[in-house]
Design a protein around this nucleic acid. Structure first.
Lengths: 241, 241
DNA sequence: ACTTTTGCACCTAGGTGTTAACAT
DNA sequence: ATGTTAACACCTAGGTGCAAAAGT
């Protein structure tokens, strides 16, 4: 994922669908991004792989993106697909825009937090998400990514250009769409196109089967696009001749 | 003010500064727009005046614009200038976008409401603002306006074009800026450039002198531009030769 | 005759990867 | 060598009044 000083959106944006909330209870929904390991990485061109390149840089001020619709009732949250498309990443450790601060060339994993309103008094964009009763975190391994300031992998670049409306100006029609379709095809072979994630229920909420379910049916491709560069490497890329 | 089927912003937007709130109490801030009288108007070109042209059209579904930062603490509200620039007006009585529905060729007056959070359970974009304890409405006579679907008065048009960044394409440089400056000058003669409005305190809040004060110092011109067409007629308009 | 609608050119505002310059 | 920055062209998204067309 590209990070800049000014702040850059994630693409594709994390989107999530929630069920099992108390319709009449108020909740905050928030996202933070945690390191996957303690390593710094570099991209090796000749093998097209990310390799460990030392230990991680010193930790960075903690930031939380509180979904702008917060707080809202369980009913409201469950009625819509919750999108984090306005979240921005930065590599500026002195950032004062409330963006999430990350180190470049590191691996990260987004987490979604559901915080019951009465437990959210400590919730702040510049403090770690509180834990305990009435707070629950969810992670999606599919969405691990590597931060960069410039793309290392030309296939990632092409996928971004093809899928992000704001990058339309860099598409050269025909050729790219075929490349993407080939990727989608190869992906469908060894990955179920729908996956339901089941979690323990949130404390104080009646237990149900699907507390939180990513809407993979409609957006499995989006998630595919947000994974780390290494992961996409393992796909069979058919370059149209 | 222009109204359309799709919804059109007010320009300039209503902006307000609040003081006297309890910093730790939560409030909603909302705006609605009420008829000034029971009349319909038409614009008479030869006299450059709005004239009564019969009784008002049948009433329209009530709508409330809840400020998108709501709810927020008194501290948060008082720290910023509160802008209603995303509010939209429509003449579509079947509107389903949550816009404020008005009749064309009628006179209206915006009202700002402060609703203590615990009194805002009934607050809804499609219901009248509740009244009573913990709710207070404020009106600014300067901001009365007349709705149209096409501008009747060329001076209004020119003011909008000169002040609204989105209308920059219609400016013909030089001439217009002079016209505006002449208007500003004549306005300053007979109107104090700063006015402080004092209201009774909000129930449950310690009484203070300035509960709500429009930031006229910095934006008296904005308010000048938002008034009804008739009012602007009474200004001495110096057309640069 | 008057009012409203619609498509439009022209803007603001801001999200893309690119590229060359810069930093380390 | 490698990683980062800043200016840029090219987009999306949407807010303007205009003018011709359509209603009433």
């Amino acid at each position: 994922m590209i990070i800049t000083k000014a702040g850059r959106r994630m693409f594709p944006a994390m989107r999530v669908k929630i069920s099992g909330l108390d319709p009449h209870q108020q909740y905050y929904i928030a996202m933070d991004i945690v390191p996957v390991d303690n390593k710094r990485y570099r991209y090796v061109y000749h093998s097209s792989k990310w390799m460990v390149a030392g230990n991680a840089d010193s930790p960075v001020p903690p930031r939380v993106y509180i979904h702008p619709d917060s707080p809202a009732s369980g009913e409201t949250w469950m009625r819509q697909v919750i999108s984090f498309d306005k979240l921005k990443l930065t590599n500026n450790e002195l950032d004062d825009q409330g963006h999430i601060i990350l180190h470049s060339m590191h691996k990260y994993q987004p987490r979604v937090h559901i915080i019951r309103k009465d437990c959210g008094d400590d919730l702040s964009p510049i403090k770690p998400v509180p834990s305990g009763e009435g707070v629950k975190a969810f992670s999606f391994p599919e969405t691990v990514f590597t931060t960069v300031t410039a793309y290392q992998n030309q296939q990632i670049t092409r996928l971004k250009i093809d899928r992000n409306p704001f990058a339309k100006g860099f598409r050269d029609s025909g050729r790219n769409r075929m490349g993407l379709e080939a990727l989608v095809e190869s992906y469908a072979f060894w990955r179920p196109s729908l996956r339901t994630l089941t979690f323990e229920d949130i404390p104080g909420i009646p237990k149900q089967e699907d507390i939180l379910q990513t809407s993979l049916m409609v957006q499995w491709l989006r998630i595919c696009l947000s994974m780390e560069d290494t992961w996409i490497q393992s796909l069979v890329w058919k370059d149209p001749s």
